[in-house]
Amino acid sequence: MSFLLTALIMFLFWIALSWQFEPLYLISGVASSLLVAYLSHDLFIGQADVRTGVIRLFRFFAYVPWLMWQIVLSNIDVARRTLHPGMPISPTIIRIKNIYRTEMAMVLLANSITLTPGTITIEVNKHEFIIHAVTREAAEGVLMGGMIERVKRIEGGDDV
């Protein structure tokens, strides 16, 4: 199941990249996507079943617009601090508890923290996220901003 799904996605990817429909290209596309699927289907689909993955994918798409808005705010903030002659920064390191079970949720939260105002993920392990913040307000923004809850909602409860 995961083998065929991976092969199908890889073949669609091949067509999107080449956009050639002569038989030679199609046959080499089928061959190479089967080879790639054979080598990596267990990595690409992973442990979770497909239905859960699709539900999480849709929840993720609902999360993206909010993230984009945060990224724009973040960039205006960084640009202001960079060009300000006095450079108003007060770097600090905070730790927050890791409440996630799946690795995708950890990756998503770490990536979102790096992209949003004034904070960068330095280290993730099973127990905590270590975050470098450029100001103390930014550090509080991570804890108060609701991002942790949003990512937890994408991951879902125990059943999904």
């Binding site: 990224i71 960039n75 960084v78 640009a79 790096t114 992209l115 004034g118 960068i120």
Partner: peptide
């Protein structure tokens, strides 16, 4: 320095 590199 990571902040401008990662965001802007």
């Amino acid at each position: 320095r990571l902040h401008p590199a990662g965001k802007s």
